[in-house]
Amino acid sequence: MTTRLDTPTAVPARAGEAVSCWLTVCTVERLLPGRGAAALVGGTQVALFRLADGALHALGNIDPFTGAGVVSRGLVGDRDGEPTVASPLHKQVFALRDGRCLDDPDVRLPAFTVRAVGGDVQVGLR
């Protein structure tokens, strides 16, 4: 099932949590390969990334070091093969797969469930 766009109470499902329904946030085309964009899912800011190979990732958009909603604007890349994004403020690097901060083991971003269906990007909801 797919819900409407403006769902103020929607809560994105963390990676591993059961998904009750999917929220379409934009078309796949709308995301530049190798770059992020932010989406608003209920009250949660989600940073979406589309990699050059087509893989999609979704993390929390709030930089835990500064509280600013900027994670989606970081540069993506890899560290030892692990796909990453670097916060644009102070350049701490996070793993795109699970949100772990690779520069500070005590910090992590939430990772959310995301998929591409029929040319749309959908975020899983709880």
């Binding site: 946030v25 709308r30 600013a68 909603g69």
Partner: peptide, 18 residues
């Protein structure tokens, strides 16, 4: 120009953390 939005799915919503 279309890239200059806070949220792809809510182009008119301001970022509440600001």
């Amino acid at each position: 120009l279309s890239r200059f939005v806070s949220f792809v799915n809510a182009p008119d919503a301001p970022d509440p953390t600001i």
